[in-house]
Design a protein around this nucleic acid. Structure first.
Length: 453
RNA sequence: GAUUGCGUAGCGAAGUUGGUUAUCGCGUCGGCCUGUCAAGCCGAAGAUCGCGGGUUCGAGCCCCGUCGCGAUCGCCA
């Protein structure tokens, strides 16, 4: 084999991997600045804000930990810097009352532009973006995400998902990853994306439901998954996405659906406590106060319909309308001081074929929704674990058991009583921060009109 | 799919019963400015008013069509 490069050149590069000089960066971060008072240090980041007064220039340096005021005076102030440019600066950490960031600033003596940003930014990233239209922010997502307040939404979201996993691991759940390319519809209906899979037809998973249940049956007993789900519904609302992240868990040997609710209640408290402890600044920015519940009210579906009806919202073909969900939530908050409410016992015809019926109220199920600030954030319930009962229910729902052979095998060979739930990560984030549109709680939302960026 | 609303510089908006050169703020570009933090002051560029057609002496404005977008509903987390 021949190369345009000499053996010596190649060897030098090759050797550099084993004899590499470590990156001994002495980079100081914004949050650690107060420990460096009086010292000359190096910082790296992007230029977030600019105030150029002529002989003196103020730049706000932004790194992953926060903001620092840079002061350029004299000769160095002649450097031309555009907002969002990436820089490395060297300077003296100085106490200065007039600095907006912790009364500390960096008097810059050396400045290197690592990457210059063009000046035709669609909007001022370091400014207040609240008066921009959402489509503008979404069309320019790589840029709008650089705004620290917009980005903070996703730090909170990461914490929600992280706390979810943390809590469940603590309770002996095992994290699983199930396929998103599937050959069969999960819950019937036409709301499923078709894709080409080599020379066959396949679908994008609407839910990890069947796989979760198979893994309960595997002997793990308790499983959870954080993953994408896809819905081909042509809805266009502030609370729907065609791709979203589902926080799912499924657990075995439950007595009934109340065990699931108990588990989720403790889980939610864990999540809310973590967010409150770590992101009080973000909550304050969005004007949200987290009320950590001690217990979440649980009301029956029929009761919820009555409450909505009493408050002037008619039921919708035997179901609760979004408007009804809002007034029920409002009522519960006034009566019990809870921003959450469980609605238990949805009608059989409103639920999938694997849902366990409530033997006390035939026609109703042992399933539930969790509403948070007027929005449905969770659906869950006890599942049918008896093979024959499940098969019979499939037929009753107009489905062909033969098409669900692999799924049914789990039940044929012994399946414990079990149940689980799915929680929409973006919806939880949205409501937690009081956002008006679920797209704001999605990095790169996919909706009926949006496939980019 | 249904209902409803909106398309005016890079962004956010105003534009009267149809009337001359389409207005304002932010941003951009140039100049001044040593304590800004929504910096300030002076100046400049930037819009075939979504697109096509019609009515009219005259259309950003009225009518028809078309495309795009938002919101609500069905459905759902």
């Amino acid at each position: 084999m021949s190369s345009v490069y000499s053996k010596e050149d190649i060897k030098k590069v090759s050797d550099s991997y084993s004899n590499r000089e470590k990156n001994t960066s002495d980079r100081v971060f914004c949050t650690n600045l107060s420990e460096q008072l009086g010292k000359t240090i190096t910082m790296s980041g992007s230029i977030y804000k600019i105030n150029n007064l002529g002989g003196i220039e103020f730049y706000t340096l932004r790194d992953r930990t926060g903001l620092t005021q840079l002061v350029l005076e004299g000769e160095i102030a002649r450097v031309k810097l555009t907002p969002l440019s990436i820089v490395q600066v060297k300077g003296m950490v100085t106490k200065e009352e007039r600095s907006p960031y912790n009364g500390i600033e960096l008097k810059v003596t050396e400045l290197t532009i690592l990457s210059e940003a063009a000046s035709d930014v669609p909007f001022t990233v370091g400014g207040n973006l609240s008066n921009l239209n959402l489509p503008t922010l979404l069309d320019n997502r790589p840029i709008s995400l650089r705004n620290i307040e917009i980005l903070s939404v996703f730090k909170v979201q990461s914490e929600i998902a992280g706390s979810f996993a943390e809590f469940l691991r603590l309770h002996n759940f095992t994290e699983i990853k199930t396929p998103k390319i599937i050959s069969n519809e999960t819950e019937g209906g036409s709301n499923i994306f078709e894709i080409k899979y080599f020379d066959r037809q396949a679908f994008l998973a609407q839910s990890p439901q069947f796989y979760k249940q198979m893994m309960v049956g595997s002997g793990l007993e308790r499983v959870f998954e954080i993953g994408p789900v896809f819905r081909a519904e042509k809805h266009n609302t502030v609370r729907h996405l065609n791709e979203y992240t589902s926080l799912d868990f499924e657990m075995a040997f439950i007595k009934d659906e109340q065990d699931l609710i108990d588990m989720q209640e403790a889980l939610l408290i864990h999540i809310l406590k973590n967010i409150k402890a770590k992101y009080s600044d973000v909550l304050e920015y969005f004007g949200q106060e987290i009320i950590i519940p001690t217990s979440i009210p649980r009301i029956h579906f029929i009761e919820a319909l009555e409450i909505a009806d009493k408050l002037g919202v008619k039921d919708m073909d035997g179901d609760i309308s979004p408007e009804g969900e809002k007034v029920v939530c409002k009522y519960i908050e006034e009566q019990y001081g809870s921003q959450f409410v469980y609605i238990v016992g949805y009608p059989v015809k409103k639920r999938p074929m694997y849902t366990m019926q409530d033997e006390r109220l035939p026609g109703y199920t042992r399933s539930f929704d969790l509403l948070y600030k007027g929005l449905e954030i969770t659906t869950g319930g006890q599942r049918i674990h008896n093979y024959e009962a499940l098969k019979a229910n499939m037929i009753a729902f107009g489905l062909n058991p033969a098409a669900y052979k692999d799924y049914l095998e789990t039940f044929k060979f012994g399946m414990p009583p079990h149940g689980g739930l799915g929680m929409g990560l973006e919806r939880v984030t949205m409501k937690l921060l009081g956002l008006g549109n679920v797209r704001e709680a999605t990095l790169f939302p996919r909706d009926i009109g949006r496939l980019e960026p």
